Simulated scan of single mutants.
Amino acid sequence: MPRTTVPEQTTGRLFAYLRALLCLREEGVEVVSSQALADACHLKASAVRKDFSYFGEFGTRGVGYNVEQLIGVIRGILHLDAPMKAALVGVGNIGRALLAYPGFSQEGFHIAAAFDKDARKIGRTVKGVLVEDIANLERRIKEEGIRLGIVAVEVAEAPEVARRMADAGVKALLSFAPCNLNMPDTVKVTCVDLGMELARLVYHL
C-alpha cells in the first residue's frame, strides 16, 4: 500500500510500538503477542494488527511477533534503520542537555554539528561535539548532508534560525522555542513547549 495512504495516527503509533519493543528487548522478551504489545501502549490488540496491516504481514498467528525482527521492520518503515545526522543551534541549558542525552545515539541519531552565537561557547567541546560559530551554519549543514535540525534558541531568534536551516537543506525541524514557525510545506516542524506540556498535566490533577 502506498505510503501516502497510511493514516498519520498510524505512523505516530509506530513510534510507541518501537519504544515498547525496545523496552521488551531490554527485559529479554523474544516474542510478543499483539495483545501484550497493545497493553504496553494502552491500545486495543485490533488496533495494533490494523496498523501493521498497512505495511504487510508480520508475526505468526497464534504465536506473536519476533521482537528483534519487528524492531527492524518498524525502524525501516520510519527510516530509522540508518544513522541520521542532526544539527543543533543553541548550546544553552537545553542544548547542552540534548548533547548529553544518550537516547539519541541509542535511536540512531547523531548530533554532528552544534552552533551558537556566543563567543564564550564557540570553540568549546560539549560531550564530544565542537560548538561552532553560527556564521558557519549553512556551509556545515551542506558539507555534512544534514537534513534534521534542532532549534534550542530564544523565541525571538527561532524563526530566523529555522529559515536558515531550511534554506541550507534541512527537511525536518525539532524546535524547543515556544512559538509557531512559518515554514514551507516541504519542511516538517515539531515544536516542543515544555511549559505548555506541564500545563496539560496540571489540567488532569
Rank of each mutant, 00 (worst) to 15 (best):
R3M: 10
P7Y: 00
T10P: 11
L14S: 00
F15T: 06
L18Y: 02
A20Y: 12
A20E: 05
L22E: 15
E26W: 04
E27M: 15
V29L: 12
E30G: 09
S33N: 02
S34K: 08
D39A: 14
H42S: 15
H42G: 04
K44R: 08
K44Y: 10
K44D: 07
A45D: 13
A45H: 07
F52H: 04
S53T: 02
E57V: 15
G62H: 06
V63D: 04
G64L: 09
Y65K: 07
I71F: 02
L78W: 02
H79P: 02
D81G: 09
K85P: 06
L88R: 04
G92K: 09
N93R: 15
A97C: 13
A100I: 08
Y101M: 12
P102S: 04
S105N: 10
E107S: 13
H110V: 13
I111F: 03
A114K: 03
D118E: 09
D118P: 09
K121D: 08
R124Q: 15
V126W: 04
G128V: 07
L130H: 08
R139W: 11
I141Q: 09
G145K: 05
I150T: 01
V155W: 00
E157F: 07
E160K: 06
R163E: 02
R163T: 02
R164Y: 02
A166W: 02
D167C: 12
A168V: 04
K171D: 05
A177E: 04
P178Q: 01
C179G: 03
P184W: 00
D185R: 12
V187L: 07
K188V: 14
K188E: 09
V189G: 04
M196T: 06
L198W: 10
Y203E: 15
